[in-house]
Simulated scan of single mutants.
Amino acid sequence: MPHLRIEYSENMAGRFDGAGLAQAACDALLSSGVFNPPDSIKVRLIPVQHFRVGSGADHGFVHAELAMLSGRDKPTKQRLTEALVLAMSGLIGPGGQIVQITADAHDMDREVYAKRLLPVA
Score class of each variant (00 low, 15 high):
P2D: 02
H3R: 09
R5G: 15
R5M: 14
I6Y: 06
Y8L: 05
E10F: 00
E10P: 00
A13G: 01
A13R: 03
G14R: 07
D17Y: 07
D17M: 05
D17F: 05
G18M: 02
G18P: 04
G18W: 01
A19K: 03
L21Q: 12
L21N: 11
A22V: 04
Q23T: 08
A25V: 02
D27T: 06
D27N: 10
A28W: 04
L29M: 09
G33M: 08
G33I: 02
F35A: 06
P37C: 05
P38Y: 00
I41D: 04
K42Q: 06
K42S: 05
V43T: 06
R44H: 10
L45F: 06
L45N: 01
L45A: 01
P47I: 00
P47D: 03
Q49G: 07
R52P: 00
G54Y: 15
S55A: 09
S55W: 02
G56L: 05
A57W: 13
H59V: 08
H63T: 05
H63N: 11
E65A: 10
E65C: 07
E65S: 11
M68A: 12
G71D: 02
G71N: 02
D73I: 07
D73A: 13
K74P: 01
P75D: 09
L80R: 01
T81N: 14
E82F: 02
E82Q: 13
E82T: 10
L84Q: 02
V85Q: 10
V85W: 03
A87G: 04
M88Y: 09
M88F: 10
M88N: 07
S89L: 00
S89Q: 02
G90R: 12
L91K: 15
I92T: 05
I92K: 05
G93H: 09
G93T: 04
Q97K: 04
I98E: 15
V99M: 01
Q100F: 12
T102H: 05
A103F: 01
A105S: 08
D109I: 02
D109T: 04
E111Q: 14
E111M: 13
A114K: 03
K115H: 03
L118I: 14
L118T: 12
L118G: 13
P119C: 09
P119V: 09
